[in-house]
Design a protein around this nucleic acid. Structure first.
Lengths: 162, 162
DNA sequence: AAATAATTGACTATTTTTCTCGGATATGTG
DNA sequence: CACATATCCGAGAAAAATAGTCAATTATTT
């Protein structure tokens, strides 16, 4: 499986969206602020999420993104697949042509692992994660920080421009 | 978890070693040929595997590497950890300081995944993999190819130097 | 002595990931 | 309508990680 920060960003953004989009669409600008992900990068990720049918974009003022399904119907694995294309551990993408068009020594091993990871992540929905106490606490903290009440860490983190 | 080709190479090489080192040490040159991994890269990987106490180097003619424990006592997870340093899915390496010294939204999620992957890979020993029918067949094929009886694919693959 | 093979470290190339920029398109509001 | 807001889109640049190379040293066997 390819678990890069790309996939992590996507899951984080989707969680943020699920948490905030009960009523109105959420703008990427807001998500960018709260989760500290660059806006342009978020745009790229959401383009894929939209093509995968997981979110819908609403243009114009008051617009933003919203989940196109209930948070209980979106699992973590599909989010990662949507942005990362593959969730495969094998080198060949399951085609078993890793070594000179023949499977390599470890082919089956990685195949088993892929399955393991996919099953695990597919068994967890956005809602499952949101229901965790810790997650709700963190989300509340982020809301406060993003709205201006910055913690000391936030301030420390700002680098002095040259 | 960081599952890169680096970790895959290491596991593949260790399997090759386990399969061939019943009697005498196995040279990296041989492993490089059979598994098509660059010799210098293997040297780097085995330096780490040796420091982790999983293999022993024997210098001089007739030398090479051999497992320092029985193949049943070496699991896949520790091989990957030895070369990749971490098997962690979290961004912060489990330190929970992902966002301004505080845990990010998805921290616990990645932590759970890491555990899942580690447990799975730790439950599989080198010997387990070697006992699989497929793996033995592939290993035999590689022995033939590396000893000169090259298949058509092998030949096709050789690039003409400029 | 000569050949073999591990050992080491610094360095380069390649690929992937991450991010930026500039603009286009759609939509709600005054 | 004009204007602001926000999505949408594609080409690339910058940064980071990965993968691989090179050159030299050390230990060991024959």
């Amino acid at each position: 499986m390819r678990l890069t920060t790309k996939g992590r960003y996507a899951v984080t953004a989707m969680l943020d969206l699920a948490y905030h989009s009960e009523k109105r669409p959420v703008t990427l600008t807001d998500i960018a602020k709260r989760q500290q992900i660059s806006l342009s990068y978020l745009e790229q990720l959401f383009a894929r999420l939209r093509r995968a049918g997981m979110v819908e974009g609403v243009r114009g003022p008051g617009g933003g993104y919203q989940l196109s399904r209930d948070a209980s119907q979106i699992n973590i694995a599909e989010i990662i697949i949507a942005v990362d294309e593959t969730i495969d551990s094998t080198r060949c993408g399951g085609k078993a042509n890793c070594q000179n068009n023949q499977p390599c020594l470890t082919h089956d091993l990685w195949l088993g692992l892929s399955e393991q990871i996919r099953d695990y992540l597919a068994s967890i929905s956005l809602q499952d994660v949101l229901q965790r106490k810790n997650v709700r606490l963190i989300a509340e903290r982020q809301d406060k920080q993003a709205s201006g009440v910055q913690g000391i860490d936030m301030l420390l983190r700002q680098e002095t421009p040259i």
